[in-house]
Deep mutational scan, measured.
Amino acid sequence: HRQALGERLYPRVQAMQPAFASKITGMLLELSPAQLLLLLASEDSLRARVDEAMELII
Results as ranks from 00 to 15, higher is better:
L31A: 06
A19E: 15
R47Y: 03
L9H: 02
L5K: 02
L40H: 01
Q3I: 07
L36T: 03
I57D: 01
L5E: 03
L5G: 02
A4T: 12
S45N: 12
R12K: 15
V13F: 03
L9Y: 01
S42K: 06
T25G: 02
E7K: 10
L39N: 01
R8Y: 13
P11V: 13
L56F: 13
Q3K: 12
L37T: 10
E52F: 07
L39P: 00
E30T: 08
L40D: 04
H1T: 15
L9G: 01
L56D: 08
M27S: 02
Q17G: 03
R2E: 14
F20H: 12
L40W: 03
F20C: 05
A41Q: 11
S22W: 10
R12T: 06
A48Q: 11
I57E: 02
M16E: 04
A41D: 13
H1V: 15
D44F: 03
A53F: 13
L9C: 03
I24E: 00
V50Q: 00
A41S: 12
S32I: 05
A4Q: 14
L56Q: 14
T25D: 00
Q14D: 06
I58H: 11
L36I: 13
R47H: 06
Y10M: 07
I57Y: 03
A4H: 06
L46G: 00
I58M: 13
L28D: 00
Q17E: 11
G6W: 15
A53I: 15
K23P: 05
I58T: 09
E43S: 07
G6D: 06
G26A: 13
V13Y: 01
S45R: 14
L5R: 02
M27P: 00
M27T: 03
I58W: 08
S22Q: 11
L29K: 03
R47K: 10
K23H: 08
P11K: 13
L38H: 13
P18T: 02
Q14L: 10
S22K: 12
L40Y: 03
I57F: 04
Q17W: 11
P33N: 14
L40T: 03
D51M: 12
L29E: 03
K23V: 15
P18N: 04
Q35P: 02
R47G: 04
R12Y: 12
L46P: 00
R47M: 06
L28S: 03
E55F: 08
A4C: 08
E52H: 10
L29Y: 02
G26E: 15
G26F: 10
L31D: 07
A15M: 09
P33H: 14
Q17M: 13
F20I: 03
S42N: 15
L38C: 07
L56S: 11
I24A: 00
M16Y: 13
E7P: 06
E52G: 05
V50I: 10
A21K: 00
S22H: 11
A48C: 07
Q3P: 10
E43I: 05
Q3H: 09
E55S: 13
S22D: 11
E30N: 07
I24G: 00
S45A: 15
L40G: 01
R2Y: 04
S42I: 04
L56E: 11
R49S: 11
A48E: 11
L28W: 02
L36F: 02
R12G: 05
L29N: 02
E30K: 07
M27H: 04
A15D: 11
S42Q: 08
L37G: 10
R49P: 01
M54V: 09
V13A: 02
P11W: 08
L36K: 01
L37D: 14
L38W: 08
A34T: 13
L36A: 02
L39M: 09
A19V: 13
Y10Q: 04
M27F: 05
E55D: 11
A15N: 08
L29Q: 04
R2K: 15
L28F: 04
L28E: 00
A41P: 01
H1Q: 15
M16R: 03
A53W: 05
R2A: 13
R49Q: 11
I24H: 00
Y10L: 08
I24D: 00
S32K: 07
S42L: 05
E52S: 07
S42T: 06
V50C: 02
Q3E: 14
V50T: 03
L40S: 02
T25I: 14
P11L: 08
L31Y: 06
V13M: 02
R47I: 06
K23W: 08
E43P: 09
L28H: 00
A34H: 11
E7Y: 03
R49A: 15
A21Q: 01
A53S: 07
S22T: 12
Q14N: 11
P18A: 04
A53M: 12
L56P: 01
I24Q: 00
Y10W: 10
E30F: 05
A19M: 11
Y10C: 05
E52W: 12
A48M: 12
F20Y: 14
D44P: 06
A4L: 09
G6T: 10
Y10T: 03
A34Y: 10
A34I: 10
I58D: 08
